[in-house]
């Protein structure tokens, strides 16, 4: 039996020979899930302004949804998982999956940056698209890493859009300073 004959016998015994290709929807969902699951650790590209200066910060601690405060929106206290950083990974491919990715989030909101100080940005929710009401989102940052959200800067009074899944912020274009494009993704995902 030569190589060709042997290969033909093996191929005839291939248990995957009759497999149908995965429908495009499922293929896209697989890629999206993989992208979302790894979105949080990715390097974000733009610095955060801390104390009026452009500083670089990373989500090394956690996003903490604080207890309800008497003068603001109310909601349960939830602590989200910390996200690490991976400076080697590009965020670019996520754009294709933005809307579907956002729909997979369990928390999504538009908020306003109330303060940025000591490596922490406090964000007051203005509109919750998905998930339970929350009173405040705190982005705790450490010096020396990338910014907590995609976007040019985080400044007091600026609006941001944030999505999170299983306690991790969806970065890589899914969370960031509010822009027409990003808002459009959120509107399409949750509108």
């Amino acid at each position: 039996m030569n190589d060709d004959q042997l290969q033909a016998r093996l191929r005839a015994a291939d248990p995957a020979s009759g497999m149908e290709p995965l429908p495009e929807m499922r293929r896209a969902a697989l890629l999206e899930r993989a992208a979302l699951a790894t979105a949080a650790p990715r390097r974000t590209r733009l610095p955060v302004v801390l104390g009026g200066l452009v500083a670089v910060a990373t989500v090394a601690g956690a996003i903490v949804l604080l207890l309800p405060r008497p003068d603001g929106p109310t909601g349960p206290a939830v602590t989200l998982r910390a996200a690490g950083t991976d400076p080697t990974v590009s965020c670019a491919p996520l754009a294709d999956f933005a809307v579907e990715g956002l729909r997979g989030s369990d928390l999504a909101l538009r908020g306003r940056v109330e303060s940025v100080s000591d490596g922490t940005a406090e964000i007051v929710p203005l509109e919750v698209y998905r998930g339970a009401a929350v009173s405040l989102v705190r982005l705790r940052t450490d010096a020396g890493g990338g910014p907590a959200l995609d976007g040019p800067v985080l400044r007091d009074g600026e609006q941001v859009l944030i999505a999170a899944t299983d306690g991790s912020v969806a970065a890589c274009g899914l969370s960031g300073v509010r822009s027409t494009e990003l808002q459009r993704y959120y509107d399409r995902a949750f509108g």
Binding site: L30, R33, A34, A37, T38, P41, T88, V89
Partner: peptide
């Protein structure tokens, strides 16, 4: 496993 492989792929694109 397919999901895991794709995640590894994303994490280690480089």
């Amino acid at each position: 496993v397919l999901s895991e492989v794709l995640m590894v792929c994303w994490r280690r694109l480089e």
